[in-house]
Design a binder for these strands. Structure first.
Length: 423
RNA sequence: GGAGAGAUGGCCGAGUAGGUCGAAGGCGCUCGCCUGCUAAGCGAGUAUACUGGGAAACCGGUAUCGAGGGUUCGAAUCCCUCUCUCUCCGCCA
């Protein structure tokens, strides 16, 4: 959520920067609602001030029969207040709803552009290798090796659900452990294991609600939502809190499954593990001092890259343009891993800084000085990494001509020493 | 699922026959004093949001005692609904 005061005082600039995201104008309504609300607020408060003063006088008089006229008058004032407050409440709700649907202002360093075609290549790592034989996509490899069973997943639940078997299940688990160990032991994150379902307040805090309810799996009674990413429960750990400056930066990492409706993506990536309704992810989340957030995004991205380097998987880092960054993000790097089975780069991690956008929604603050006013922290997060897609990358990059798949050396300790997955 | 207890400021904790309570007291913290160090002591200050005025320091107003509604001239205090926490019983990985 953006700062109301900031919008009011910088309307043109905010509008202009939001427009670089493409799409509609966001702030036409704002001026009108803001003015209406403040006018009513003033009216209401003046009435209340009068009521308070007179009620105080009444309280001091023992014989109430002497102040009957005042009591009657205040009864009128009280009714007036009710009426004004009713209108105020409506305007206020409208304004809040508007603000909750306005996306974050892009970071000055975010390249301006309309679509993913305008994203900017930042760097590449490793050599995308063309295999000396006909490379298979992972869905063929997985089925041939008997480690991925898409049909069975569809039978148990439905489309876009997958059953992992044997070495496939073990490989997924090994990747989770490798990633968590790296981030906790080497990168200094605290591991947390959060709830996989959250309430509406948490979803609103990180920005999934109210605008993207259709993308979520929702429980009716009680009303809980399956998390689409660990970002939601982990960022909300500190919702409504005032942190100590000395607590910052706070770094958490978490493994969770993620659940996404993938509404509107019918027909996209229908084969294989790329786009599932349920997938595993290790997420990194940081709460930092505002002056640190730019640097923190770079190190966070580096932490995600490190996983791919350990697994010796070629990748590139893209700076997303203004038209492609997410609703809550100010700046985002996508890490894309090379998939020889499909001869393309695919997103495997997304690392973003949100500035104070989420912190304002979720009210996560700190004090610069012991006596100072609370200020909003900056939040960041990034996948480190999407586990299913990492498994895909391993299958496709480490496949051999005979259809077997070598286990990357860094992963072997986690696989009971297994060096090769074969039929 | 059944029975009961509770939710007050950074923390602890008073306050429920409605008005003098934004809220006693303590702890913590900040500033000052004092003590040649430390401890102790003394004094002052110490919530948040919105909002009016002001260049600012600052000075006003309103709201907030889990959340929402109601009664009343007036509610932390009375009534209703909800949420959460704790204890006991049942059930359970």
């Amino acid at each position: 959520m953006l700062d109301m005061k900031y919008i009011r005082e910088n309307l043109d600039e905010v509008e202009q920067r939001l427009r670089t995201r493409g799409g509609e104008s966001y702030l036409d309504e704002f001026k009108r609602l803001d003015l209406a609300r403040r006018t009513l607020l003033l009216e209401s408060e003046q009435l209340k001030a009068r009521k308070n003063v007179v009620s105080d006088e009444i309280g001091k008089v023992k014989d109430k029969s002497l102040v009957q006229d005042k009591i009657l008058e205040m009864r009128e004032v009280s009714n007036e207040i009710k009426a004004v407050d009713e209108r105020l409440k409506q305007e206020d709700e409208e304004l809040q709803n508007l603000l909750l649907t306005v996306p974050n202002v892009p970071h000055p360093a975010t390249p301006v552009g309309r679509s993913e075609n305008d994203n900017v290549l930042v760097r590449t790592w490793g050599e995308p290798q063309e295999l000396p034989f006909a490379a298979k996509p992972h869905w063929d490899l997985g089925e041939d090796l008997g480690i991925l069973d898409f049909e069975c997943g569809a039978k148990i639940t439905g489309a876009r659900f997958t059953l992992y078997r044997g070495a496939g299940a073990r490989l997924e688990r090994a990747l989770i452990n490798l990633m968590l160990d790296l981030h906790t032991d080497t990168h200094g994150y605290m591991e947390v294991l959060p709830p996989f379902m959250v309430n509406r307040d948490s979803m609103q805090g990180t920005g999934q609600l109210p605008k993207f309810e259709d993308d979520l799996f929702k429980m009716v009674d009680p009303e809980y939502f399956l998390i689409p990413t660990a970002e939601v429960p982990v960022t909300n750990i500190h919702r409504g809190e005032i942190l100590k400056k000395s607590d910052l930066p706070i770094s958490y990492c978490a493994y969770t499954p993620c659940f996404r409706r993938e509404a509107g993506s019918y027909g996209k990536d229908t084969r294989g593990l790329i786009r599932q309704h349920q997938f595993n992810k290790v997420e990194m989340v940081k709460f930092v001092h505002p002056s640190e957030s730019d640097a923190a995004l770079e190190t966070l991205t580096g932490h995600a890259e490190k996983v791919l380097q350990m697994l010796d998987l070629p990748y590139r880092v893209m700076a997303l343009c203004s038209g492609d960054i997410g609703f809550s993000a100010a700046k985002t790097y996508d890490i894309e891993v090379w998939l020889p089975g499909q001869s393309c780069y695919r997103e495997i991690s997304s690392c973003s800084t949100f500035g104070d956008f989420q912190a304002r929604r979720a009210s996560i603050r700190f004090r610069e000085d012991e006596k100072g006013k609370p200020e909003f922290v900056h939040t960041l997060n990034g996948s480190g990494l999407a586990v299913g897609r990492t498994l895909v990358a391993i299958l496709e990059n480490y496949q051999q001509e005979d259809g077997s798949v070598l286990v990357p050396p860094a992963l072997r300790p986690y696989m009971g020493g297994l060096e090769r997955i074969s039929r």
